[in-house]
Design a binder for these strands. Structure first.
Ligand code: NAD
Ligand code: NAD
Lengths: 227, 227
DNA sequence: CTGCATTGGAGTACACGTGCACAAGCGCCT
DNA sequence: AGGCGCTTGTGCACGTGTACTCCAATGCAG
């Protein structure tokens, strides 16, 4: 006899596209809850996040049947289920390697702790920076790069953030993984190679701008033709 | 008689998925050029960026026939063609609204100018910040938020970056568009609504972490089952 | 100049993700 | 108690994007 769906995390594979949208639903639901809403229809929620209601319902149905036909979804309950599915009900310790412009901005950002992420380590090789205390909720001291392995092992860190210059990124990545990290968030503008089983998400702000520039150029081209 | 393909930007629609990969190819080619390579085969380049060679070739063939059979692609030439397609051969002025942790990091980042992006405006309502001079290549003075429309119009800005708190993002977005901006890069954790014809790319760092946490939780779940 | 090995480009089959439309189910009102 | 309207959940068809296969074009060696 299978467990009721509400009592387990979905074992069926959730499409990557859906996974990417779940945090967006989460955000919108938090906003709704703060506004005091108790229930929400798929139509409303879909409009808030900019997707079609059919897609939203299909996404949610992959996690389980958490809605009530004729009524909609109970905000608190759905919020909890998505949080659980995303692993937001537990605490994720993370380290940031490279405390320059970007690493500093991340460390100062207060929005991570509310979603269950806790910065337990800041690493940088620059002696000028080491020893500095940075943080939004609570201060974390910047430690020398040599202590990377210690920090990761001690706190059981599974998620690492790379905010170093590009030339150092692969080496840092290798060390993180060797120390036990299994998910990498990479800001350096290059493709880091990782062994199977390790997840990587690269965020390249320059790349995003280039995509925008491409579309902008297309718009300009179209206008030229039309005139 | 149609123009030879090499003399025009591709008029056939380029798939969004391909557009997203072009900057990655661009990056890899720059690295290859710096290393002194003159030609590169589809196999090599594909390995460098982590895609299959077939996909790479199909992507490139959408832009034109820039390769030589039996040899590969000439690095400089291909680089130029991709740059042209992406609109990197021209200069894109951009404004950043909100000079906090993140806006400051972006303004201090030197990697944009080399790809044709030039920061011409930094806007912030905080009088403490206004007047400050920030920049990597050349300094830009932070101006009061009221002058947003002036800056955009004067410099003919088409791309705007939103790095304000979430509650201010939509208002800022509306003002940018009203002033003439047609592409938005948004860092605030919400979905901004824009009229048709305006492109938006949202980068939510918290969202990326949540996706990683999801996969991490999945891995943990699998291990539990196995033990 | 010829033959051969190499490599891009086009064509084809497949998988994934999306949108549509409808049946199933719940609550409310009579 | 029963029917009615509302919203969910889902099967199905479509389109887009991806992986694979084949072939001809091309450079190079002899
Ligand atoms: N700042 C931005 O807005 C921005 C935008 C796009 C991409 N990036 C990328 O993010 C990364 C960081 O950018 P940044 O502006 O913070 O750079 P930064 O130069 O300000 O900071 C880099 C930090 O890494 C440290 N570092 C140097 N060598 C290291 C090594 N071998 N191991 C570990 N740490 C080392 C430095 O001491 C420094 O503190 C870069 O790869 C950059 O390309 C940044
Ligand atoms: N810093 C990060 O690492 C990080 C990570 C993820 C998301 N974000 C998001 O990026 C945005 C900026 O983050 P931050 O850390 O730089 O915040 P911040 O508070 O440091 O900076 C925000 C800046 O916006 C300015 N501002 C306030 N109200 C404004 C208004 N009405 N119009 C224009 N400007 C206004 C403030 O004066 C301040 O300088 C936020 O939405 C945040 O959620 C930041």
């Amino acid at each position: 006899m299978p467990l009721p769906r509400s009592e387990r995390t979905a074992t069926t594979a959730v499409p990557e596209a859906t996974v990417a949208r779940l945090p967006v639903y989460h955000r919108a639901l938090v906003a709704l809850a703060e506004r005091g809403a108790t229930t929400v229809s798929s139509e409303e929620l879909a409009a808030a996040v900019g997707v079609t209601s059919a897609k939203l319902r299909k996404d949610l149905s992959l996690l389980g049947s958490y809605g009530t036909r004729g009524v909609g979804y109970e905000v608190d309950y759905l919020l909890y289920q998505i949080s659980r599915e995303l692993g937001l009900t537990q605490d994720w310790p993370l380290v940031i390697v490279g405390v320059g412009n970007l690493g500093r901005a991340l460390a100062n950002y207060g929005g991570f702790s509310s979603r269950g992420f806790r910065i337990v380590g800041l690493l940088d090789p620059d002696p000028e920076i080491v020893g500095e205390k940075i943080g939004a909720d609570f201060l974390v001291e910047v430690r020398p790069l040599d202590e990377l392995e210690d920090v990761v092992t001690e706190a059981g860190v599974l998620i690492g953030v790379i905010a170093t210059p590009a030339h150092a990124a692969q080496a840092v990545c290798d060390r993180l993984i060797a120390a036990g990290v299994r998910s990498i968030m990479n800001f350096a503008p290059l493709v880091v190679a990782v062994p199977p089983g390790v997840s990587v998400r690269s965020v390249d702000l320059g790349l995003e701008l280039q995509v925008l520039a491409f579309h902008e150029q297309r718009k300009l081209g179209r206008e030229e033709v039309r005139s």
